[in-house]
Design a protein around this nucleic acid. Sequence first.
RNA 1: CGGGGUGUAGCGCAAUUGGUAGCGCACGUGGUUUGGGACCAUGGGGUUGCAGGUUCAAGUCCUGUCACUCCGACCA
Length: 478
Amino acid sequence: MDNKEFVKDITNMDEDFAQWYTDIILKAELVDYAPVKGFMVIRPYGYALWENIQKILDAKFKQTGHKNAYFPLLIPESMLNKEKEHVEGFAPEVAWVTHGGENELAERLCVRPTSETIICTMYSKWIKSHRDLPLLINQWANVVRWEKTTRPFLRTSEFLWQEGHTLHSTAAEAKDETLKMHKIYADFCKNYLAIPVIMGRKSEKEKFAGAEETYTIEALMHDGKALQSGTSHYFGNNFAKAFNIKFQNKEGKEEFAYQTSWGMSTRIIGGIIMTHGDNRGLKLPPNIAPTQVVIVPIAQHKDGVLDKVEELKNILSVKYRVDTDIRDEYSPGYKFNYWELRGVPIRIEMGPKDIENGECILFRRDILQKEVIKIADIDSKIEETLANIQENMYKMAVKNVEDHTYVAQNLEEYLEIFNEKQGYVKIMWCGKQECEDKIKELTSSTIRCIPFEQENLSEKCAICGKMPNHMVYTARQY
RNA sequence: CGGGGUGUAGCGCAAUUGGUAGCGCACGUGGUUUGGGACCAUGGGGUUGCAGGUUCAAGUCCUGUCACUCCGACCA
């Protein structure tokens, strides 16, 4: 088994990563293109991934005191216009509803690009007293942003996400909340998706429209480009002032509430694909895989094979997500490739000889290796192997980040790196937008984040040579 | 929104000078197979992206338009 072995119908990822990505998502049946440009159909296998993401994140949100609600899809234009920076940030990509049936509306309605404005409007009605705070609400929803260039999962005109919107009586509490959710996203990526992320803050230029602070988790894809994978924003009372969200404090005085919002979207599925996939297709981390174990019978027409497969499935289904492939029209070899393309972590092969010996073959998708195991040991073996795959996939992803992380002391070194490589380039930065703009102009890379874990690389901004105040990660991005 | 590329069956492609649109894979049916993409037989599937135009005749020539895609600018 060799990973370089020719795989039918899939473009080699090292030759054309973009085409590889397209091949994978279509052939693994995650999505299909919709009739309207920029929109995608999420097919059952892709949606199952999203459902697993939802299930895990939703539980984390609830554990931390949040409740789900649902706000409307359409927002009156006047409402969107209340916060100046926010509307300037989103206006260019808003879709508008102008007619109800045959009649033109008196005020046009925007299809939500994000829900801050409608939620703030409602919050201002609901909040009277410090006793109403904190207000911790999340919604699972779709939003629409009319994008010019789109790619399934990574940038689509409509995407699914969750958006948390919370109100607090103090700035400190709201800041804590922002960081708490930021950490939940990072832990989720690490522990479930096996994606290592850089945790940090966005620069002024890159932060969310209307926010005081934006925190981001940045993930590095196989091709060395960065993907913003989850954000949390601290709004201070910018929106509270624009939407008049006030409460009476313990002293009886009126105060503006402090606010946060945070979100993770279907984009992260693109992140899973591009972090772990290989030339055989998808490679899904066990903790998120819709199917963790697939059982493929060999010579399934022979007596007892299908019975044994069914029996094994029933045993394993108690603890794992298990599928069997008993399609009569395909050969075992076809099925092996089929499930590898779909990224199922473990495959069990079982034929008459194995059954006779009380054995079966366990195949690991992550390292493409087969092992003979005793059926009697299968439960503990699967548990151990799934954990092992999860851990190994994280390690491989970490290694990819390490292999694609560079340091530049000055502009010359910086340009040299981006001339031939893709990845994170760590630099010292003076904090001025002028320098930020310059690297973007020259290399199309941007400051991805100002990481919490700072390092002192030198005493000079890599761009202008002045006193630096931050070490930052830069990269080209999706 | 600027620059390039591509549109012929689900996918990949072919069609000579403008002259009856074809091949492989996939798909339907019957059978034989089954430890890394099986085989035989047989069958179905097309307003050549769309709209105009030139011509006796257009997949092919002309104009427009749409979609996809890559590279920039803009963004989760």
